[in-house]
Design a protein around this nucleic acid. Sequence first.
RNA 1: GGGGGAAUAGCUCAGCUGGUAGAGCAGCGGACUCUUAAUCCGUUGGUCCGGGGUUCGAUCCCCCGUUCCCCCA
Length: 501
Amino acid sequence: MTTEQTIPNQDENQIITERRAKLTALRNAGIAFPNDFERKNLSGDLHTAYGEMSHDELATAHVSVAVAGRMMLKRVMGKASFATVQDMSGRIQLFISNGDTGEEAHSAFKHYDLGDILGASGVLFKTKTGELSVRVSQIRLLTKALRPLPEKFHGLTDQEQKYRQRHVDLITNEDARRVFTIRSKVIQSIREFFMRHDYLEVETPMMHAIPGGASAKPFVTHHNALDMEMFLRISPELYLKRLVVGGFEKVFEINRSFRNEGLSTRHNPEFTMIEFYEAYRDYKYMMDFTEKLFCEVSRKVLGTTVITYQGREIDLAKPFERLTMTQAIRKYHPQFSDAQLNDRDFLINELEDLKAKYNTKDALGGLQLSLFEELAEHQLFEPTFIVDYPVEVSPLARSSDTHPGVTDRFELFIVGREIANGFSELNDPEDQEARFDAQVLAKEAGDEEAMFKDADYIRTLEYGLPPTAGEGIGIDRLVMLLTDCASIRDVILFPQMRPEI
RNA sequence: GGGGGAAUAGCUCAGCUGGUAGAGCAGCGGACUCUUAAUCCGUUGGUCCGGGGUUCGAUCCCCCGUUCCCCCA
């Protein structure tokens, strides 16, 4: 809405200059950006309704249509032309000729450029090669595109440009449209699943005075009026459990959370997950529930539970395997005995040999986890729940009644990546306070990802959190799986990038 | 953070261990009334990512930097 002409001279080129001249001519001739074209038909609907009709049937039916879209292909043959326009539902071919539109309109059309947005009305017909097309009687330029599109055959292939100029990627690459359409449907079907199970969708704060609910470094910001440091949330967990205390016994939030860590093919600093909590359930129920969810989402969105990821097939309808960490290690490294995997000195020796990262102060469970991450995690291609996480890395999970040092917790791995994390919630306020205190000690000892003590959350638990199970599922990673994308940037519309200049 | 790769016309890409750059598409002009990445003829278009260095001469070799991609932590 600015009247100021902001022309980026530095990347002005001949093509843009010529298109600008065409725009100037349009301005001089009248309204250059009209807003009165009434689009009546989508190309996809027309193909569905009339695609199967013969040339003669269509001629008899005499179907009048008005379509609009971006011109993607253009073939001029003297007194007649073909153009392909693309709208939100697909593409349709236009036939423009002196005989149908008059020579003046057709001549004007010849100066339209690929990328321009057109509106056309006319009658449906089939070409002699059988392609459903519009015999155009009136055609208008609705929006002049000043910048040229990428090459019509290859589209945009430069990864950086695909991410930085996602609109161009979406215009030219059908696969990009496919991925983000699937993403939308995945979220929709997840929401439907939870609605059907009587969950309440809620929104909790994204700005936290105390970042909690996960072990991660937060982004820091500042509230001016309150003059206080605030954090972008790393997880909505503690707020959602407050709501369970409040009596909302089944809640979920499809949330954006933020973690101040590096960027990679698996990490974007802001990411989408769903967290959900259900009272009077345990972590075992959540595993069953998760299997149902994954199966249903895949079936609804893709029409099948059998997916192919990077060349390998997975059937989400098959029961997900459930292993403890040591079982998973032994599955891929049968040379280890149970006794060895329960021997601190042995584990430390192995981790040293592997040059793996681990915390020397860790108890047995922490060391097992380090070895699991080193030797087994990346091999878990088939969906696998790893159960019985150690207490020291699970400060919000309920302790096992039968195995000291272990919590009622699982993580789900598919294609070697963590995709979900759930547990029976710790609802003993005194135990929770002790766990927070342990986290504070870890933080003081230099663990930047250790949790803060949240006294308000303890007070909340003191009102009584019913026995509850909760879980978080990484939606970006789930979408990667369902769309066969290798990089998280391929499933995030605008992934975080370094500034261009 | 470490290692490897990439950056050349608006886009997709060539460019021979050194001699100031080419093709296709797009654009512009022309021919063409059923094309399908239309075709045919002609033609415009370059900060070879940026900055230093070596050299008579650098897109090419060396150093520094920027961004992206891949692998590792």
